[in-house]
Design a protein around this nucleic acid. Structure first.
Lengths: 188, 188
DNA sequence: GGTGTATAATCGAACGATCGTTCTATTGGT
DNA sequence: ACCAATAGAACGATCGTTCGATTATACACC
């Protein structure tokens, strides 16, 4: 186990823990044991307790997602480069498909009603960003929407499939397939 | 609320409850309140307690999935009919995309280690069934595998996207798009 | 058709264990 | 000597489970 020496390390570790056990399945005992910190020490860093820890994790993954996946779409690079950078960001964000639970953790159980609006907005913002740059390539609005949804659906579906089967190679294949679909539908 | 008058009604209700709260998020208090049965009455029907209830739910959705999604692929109908029936089964099984959590409930938290092998086998069996009937249409093995994965990925991804955005129309669109992709890649 | 009885099905109260949280005290660095 | 950071013990609440007892249902017998 990686030794925790900073606040960032701690949030990273909390992310792993919530990802493994889910929010409701993560107890303070589990958090204490897996971080190596006493229960009271966790409350020193997060006075709001378990909920504040989940918030910190959620904010962290939101920052990561924005930086790795969304921001490449808002650059001045040409279209294929934007898409390629986004897909690389996806691969980093989801750790080659092995970190597929990031969304589910907050979309299931007690945290559902807290985060569903934010998840919804993030998904729609991702979609809108794709629609925008696809339309810039001369594709009409309706086709751009369908294509954007298809891209996101393929990525999210690949995550589910990889986790269900344990076949994480399929995730990389699926990402390549997304790139292929895009170039076939847009650049030709 | 639908009155519970049979064992089947009870398992249906349990499915809804676990789906809404997740396994770890579902307490006996919640189960008692939402079914209208006292805690001890639940233990009368399921002596194994919460875990046996989850097992009953899992067996039920496995039966439903086999009947609605897998069995259409094993009939003597022609290829397009098999696919069409499977997609209709998907729509029924997932209730137009609004019951998207069925897998996640058992893939997250305490139940993960209990059910992950069964989920894996189900996913691989689904994929193999698709590979088989696609190869029967004269497609070579590698392409059949990729196409089968693409079909499952699109369906699962559409579920995730629909739940995240709350846009359940997108689920029907995605299913139609799957049918389109198949006919384009195989029947032409 | 009424009646007695076995058993199916229900219930709330209470159990020990664990939950998230707080308290008080101690450590370690500057 | 100050304060950030640690820790374990203990709190009330809730967890999943069990208990004892009550009600509903069904079927045999008169």
């Amino acid at each position: 186990m990686v030794k925790i020496v900073s606040y960032k390390d701690l949030v990273d570790k909390l992310t792993d823990i919530f990802c493994e056990y889910g929010y409701d399945g993560t107890s303070l005992t589990i958090l204490s044991q897996n971080t190596g910190l006493g229960r009271a020490s966790l409350y020193y860093h997060f006075p709001g307790g378990k909920e504040e820890m989940a918030n910190a994790v959620y904010e962290k993954i939101t920052r990561d997602f924005t930086k790795l996946v969304l921001s490449p779409l808002a650059t001045d690079h040409n279209f294929p480069t934007k898409i390629k950078n986004m897909l690389e960001g996806i691969n980093l964000f989801y750790n080659n498909g092995q970190r597929s639970c990031l969304l589910d953790v907050f979309a299931i159980g007690s945290t559902k009603n807290i985060f569903n609006t934010q998840i919804k907005n993030a998904a729609l913002y991702w979609k809108d960003s794709l629609v925008k740059i696809i339309k810039d390539e001369g594709i009409d609005n309706n086709r751009a929407i369908l294509l954007s949804e298809e891209i996101i659906i393929s990525i999210e579906g690949a995550l589910v499939f990889a986790r269900a089967t344990g076949d994480f190679e399929s995730f990389n294949r699926a990402l390549e397939n997304v790139l292929l679909t895009i170039t076939k539908n847009i650049l030709d």
